[in-house]
Simulated scan of single mutants.
Amino acid sequence: MPESAPQTTATSASRTGPGRVLVAVYAVFALAATARAAVQILTRFDEAPLAYLLSALAGVVYIVATVGIARSGRTSHRVAMVSCAVELAGVLVVGSFSLLDPAAFPDDTVWSRFGSGYLFIPLVLPVLGLLWLRHVARLDRAAERSA
């Protein structure tokens, strides 16, 4: 009896290779953005409330994306897709406004100037997340067809 090839699912894909790296980078950004925002909100909130609240929002979005990408299932996949899309929209909107009206952002957010303070990783990360999620969805559809 021939052995069948192991099926690749969202769970196994996110726990190996590029999926593992993506989850790790998201986790680092989740921790960094959330911790930074917490310190800023607790110590100097009155200096730049919008910037600090946006950094907190970014941290929450990174946490949700991390969990969504790391877990399997349609719901987790949808949550991850939405969070990556929100993240991309956030970095594009905040990045644009931070360049057009720098006075509105007296202190940087994670998404200011398209994430330039973080080597533009906040701009690239949601694109990679969305591409990865699309790849995993294709693997899942192929596994369903072959089952």
Rank of each mutant, 00 (worst) to 15 (best):
R113M: 11
D107H: 15
D46A: 15
P2H: 10
V64S: 06
L53N: 00
M1W: 06
A58G: 05
R138S: 13
G19E: 03
A24C: 07
A32S: 10
Q7P: 01
A103W: 09
E47H: 11
Y62L: 07
L50F: 07
I63N: 05
I41L: 14
P18A: 15
P102C: 11
W111H: 01
F29A: 01
F114H: 10
E144F: 06
L88R: 04
V64D: 05
P18V: 10
S98T: 14
Y62W: 11
G59V: 06
R78C: 01
V136R: 01
L123S: 12
W111R: 00
A27N: 06
R134T: 12
L92C: 12
A27Y: 05
S4V: 11
I41E: 00
L125A: 00
L53F: 00
L131M: 15
G17H: 08
F97H: 09
E3H: 13
A137Y: 09
V91R: 01
G17P: 07
E3Q: 13
F29N: 03
S14P: 03
T109Y: 05
R15F: 00
R44A: 14
D140P: 06
L31P: 00
A147K: 12
S76H: 12
P106K: 13
A58T: 05
V86H: 04
A33P: 01
L57T: 06
G59K: 04
A48Y: 03
V25A: 07
T75N: 05
T43V: 14
V82W: 02
V82C: 04
D107T: 12
G117N: 14
L99A: 15
Y26R: 03
F114W: 14
R15G: 10
G17M: 11
V127G: 08
A70R: 10
P18F: 14
G73V: 01
H77F: 06
D46L: 09
R78V: 07
S76W: 12
S14R: 08
A89Q: 07
D107F: 09
A137W: 14
R134N: 12
V93G: 11
L22G: 07
Q7L: 15
V61S: 05
S76V: 03
D108Q: 10
G68E: 04
T43A: 11
R44V: 11
T75C: 03
V39N: 05
T109S: 15
T9Q: 06
Y52E: 03
A5E: 13
V39T: 08
G19Y: 02
F105H: 09
G73I: 04
D46F: 08
D107L: 13
L57K: 00
V21H: 04
A89N: 07
E47A: 15
Q7N: 09
L130K: 08
A137S: 14
S116L: 12
R134K: 13
A48C: 12
A103F: 09
V23G: 01
S112Y: 09
A35C: 01
V23P: 02
A143S: 13
S112H: 09
T43D: 12
A27W: 03
M1I: 09
A13V: 08
V91M: 05
S98C: 14
L128E: 00
L31T: 08
L125H: 01
R15E: 06
S12D: 09
T43H: 08
A143Q: 07
I69V: 15
L54K: 01
G129T: 06
A142D: 15
L130N: 06
V82P: 02
S112T: 11
I69H: 03
A65L: 14
A10M: 10
T34K: 02
L119N: 04
R20T: 10
